[in-house]
């Protein structure tokens, strides 16, 4: 018996939790999703040992691709340290025996809930998104039969009308997250509820992006170097969120910030949502307002 087989026999359940038939089914769905960028492939989503809404889709995708040589990073709203991220990371440490990390650059698979890391991803990395509602048209057209027809015919006028109505009502496109994108010039896609700040990072990313929606039973993908264009109008071009202040801890200006309430007298700070990016910058000597505003010594 090889060492591998011995470890296998000692394990109370299959490698990476899912049974092999389920993995094959999900793997085939992933391959078709890659071949048809932006198209939502239906798959037979399984019950997972966590409730829907906690990332069952992303977990099933990760479980189907992960191997012992992978290094896994899990983030929840940019943070490596929140409950969802910690428990999913532990789940794969236990069931797949993989190394885990919080460093974006060290990871081969990054499972994410609603953020894309600030550090640009590289070739060979896989970003797995947890998706609640994969259908970008769902809140405009509740019938699956109709939205499927719209995708079949690339008939996306409804979404343009919705964005136009935003402009008519608010003077601008009011969507700040879940901002619809066109993938490869063909499929309208929901980037999952990432802030629209992250949309430009998807465009022609060298990393493979996989999306798993467990409750809605859909898998979709954006291969590397694929066009991902946020919908807009010539006279109302797409713009990312802007922040008035830099990060209070690391002084970064070009990143997505979370607002943190500090006391009950209106005190607040804005701080990097990407904890790894913030920690790396602080380790490099960058200081924000709350830490003394020093710039690194030359």
């Amino acid at each position: 018996m090889s060492a591998n087989a011995a470890a296998e026999a000692a394990r109370p359940y299959n490698y990476a939790y899912l049974d092999e038939q389920t993995k094959r089914m999900i793997r085939r769905a992933i391959l078709k999703a890659i071949a048809i960028p932006g198209y939502q492939v239906p798959f037979a989503s399984r019950e997972m040992p966590m409730p829907y809404g906690w990332g069952t889709g992303g977990v099933q995708v990760t479980a189907s691709i992960i191997g012992p040589s992978d290094v896994l990073k899990v983030i929840d709203q940019g943070s490596d340290d929140t409950t969802n991220a910690v428990s999913i990371r532990k789940f794969f440490e236990k069931t797949a025996g993989v190394a885990v990390t919080t460093a974006t650059t060290a990871a081969s698979i990054i499972q994410t809930r609603h953020r894309i890391p600030e550090t640009p991803l590289g070739a060979g990395q896989v970003l797995v998104y947890q998706v609640p509602i994969p259908e970008p048209l769902r809140f405009l057209e509740p019938r699956e039969t109709e939205t499927r027809k719209m995708h079949a015919l690339a008939e996306y006028g409804l979404m343009h009308v919705k964005l136009y109505e935003d402009i008519a009502k608010h003077g601008r496109i009011a969507k700040t997250y879940d901002y619809p994108v066109m993938v490869g010039g063909r499929y309208l896609m929901d980037p999952s509820p990432t802030p629209k700040f992250d949309n430009p990072k998807m465009h022609r990313s060298p990393a493979l992006q996989l999306f798993g929606a467990g409750r809605e039973k859909r898998i979709y993908a954006v291969p590397p170097h694929t066009d991902v264009v946020s919908l807009d109008f010539d006279d109302h071009p797409f713009e990312v969120n802007k922040f008035d202040k830099p990060c209070a801890l690391c002084g970064a200006t070009d990143v997505y910030l979370d607002e943190v309430i500090l006391d009950d007298r209106g005190g607040r700070m804005f701080v990097c949502s990407d904890t790894d990016n913030c920690e790396t910058r602080r380790a490099d000597g960058h200081r924000g307002e709350l830490l003394g505003n020093e710039e690194p010594r030359a």
Binding site: S2, N4, A5, E8, N14, Y15, E20, K23, R24, R27, I30, L31, I34, A35, S64, I65, I66, G67, P68, G124, L208, A221, P223, P224
Partner: peptide
Amino acid sequence: ADPVMQSQTVFRTVMAALAE
């Protein structure tokens, strides 16, 4: 010989090939 681990290796190779 080792269906679980070898299937994973094969799949990742095919996935990378179709993605690139």
